Amino acid sequence: MSDKTPNLHAAYALKSPEDNKRLYGEWAGDYDADFAAREDYQLHIHTARAFVGAGGQGPVLDVGAGTGLCGVVLAGLGVGPIDATDISSEMLDMAMRKDIYRDAIEADLNLGIPVPRESYSGIVSSGTFTHGHLGPDVLPALLRVARPGAQFALSINARHFETFGFADALRTLERDRIQNLTLPKTRIYGDLAAGANKDDTAFIALFERI
């Protein structure tokens, strides 16, 4: 592990797409060992299991796939095919080395996802909607690439669920774009976690596109 490796505090302080690309590009090579293992990160496991428990199936788009932690769990649960999208090409390179993804799509969600409409039967995202990385304004971009009836499982940091507008956005979408919304809450980290964020929680927004 490099002594220049970014940390969780730096990740939570990100404000712009350019900041995201820079930090995660630097972090890609050490991310799994430096962050996921050391911090006992568990959210990707809970999100993947929630998706499958809700009846989710492929083809799936793993949004903010990073190094592929959630994709590994999905594949282990028999879900496929899976495509990965992320703003960081370096993270996607690490994800593709895991040999679980069909395709890698480099994209800034604020600008949309460069795939045809209704390409996926499932949309999964773990750890992307947190601390200012992205707000609920990108949800329409995810709905655009989802087929009618597609299952979603999106983790959203509980601390920002109301203040960043996710609660209001989901209520609005319930009027005519999504259905069967549930919001189970889970811990982000496991019992071995330490530090200021060890007790953080997230909602997993489970719903279907109408």
Rank of each mutant, 00 (worst) to 15 (best):
K4D: 15
L8Q: 01
L8I: 07
A11C: 10
A11L: 12
Y12W: 08
L14D: 05
K15Q: 15
S16Y: 03
P17W: 08
P17I: 12
E18P: 04
D19R: 06
D19K: 06
K21A: 15
R22G: 02
L23N: 02
Y24P: 02
Y24T: 01
Y24L: 00
G25E: 02
G25Q: 02
W27A: 00
A28S: 13
D30L: 01
D30Y: 01
Y31R: 00
D32C: 01
D32M: 02
A33H: 01
F35C: 03
A37Q: 12
R38H: 02
D40F: 05
D40A: 04
D40P: 07
I45Y: 01
H46D: 00
T47V: 15
T47I: 05
T47M: 02
A48Q: 04
A48G: 11
R49N: 11
F51P: 07
F51D: 07
A54F: 04
G56N: 14
Q57Y: 03
Q57R: 04
P59I: 00
P59V: 02
L61M: 04
L61V: 09
V63P: 12
A65I: 12
A65T: 15
G66H: 02
T67N: 07
G71Q: 09
A75K: 04
G78K: 10
G80W: 10
G80L: 11
P81D: 05
D83E: 13
A84I: 09
A84T: 07
T85P: 10
D86K: 08
I87A: 15
I87Q: 08
I87P: 02
S88P: 07
E90P: 05
M91F: 13
D93N: 11
A95V: 13
M96R: 04
M96H: 03
K98P: 03
Y101K: 05
R102N: 13
A104L: 08
I105E: 10
I105G: 12
E106R: 12
D108M: 12
N110D: 08
L111C: 06
S119T: 15
S121Q: 15
S125E: 13
S125C: 14
S125P: 13
S126P: 13
S126N: 13
T128E: 07
H131E: 12
H133E: 02
H133S: 03
L134R: 13
G135C: 01
V138I: 07
L139K: 12
L139V: 10
L142W: 14
P148K: 10
A150E: 11
A153T: 09
S155N: 07
I156R: 08
A158C: 01
H160K: 06
F161A: 07
E162F: 01
E162G: 01
E162K: 03
T163R: 15
F164K: 01
F164C: 02
A167S: 14
L170F: 05
D176C: 04
Q179A: 14
L181C: 09
L181H: 09
T182P: 06
P184K: 03
T186E: 15
I188H: 03
Y189Q: 05
G190L: 05
L192G: 07
A193W: 00
A194K: 12
A194I: 08
G195K: 08
A196K: 07
A196L: 06
N197F: 13
N197G: 00
K198F: 10
T201P: 05
T201K: 08
F203R: 08
A205H: 09
L206Y: 09
F207D: 06
E208V: 09
R209P: 06
R209M: 12
I210E: 06
I210F: 05
I210Q: 06
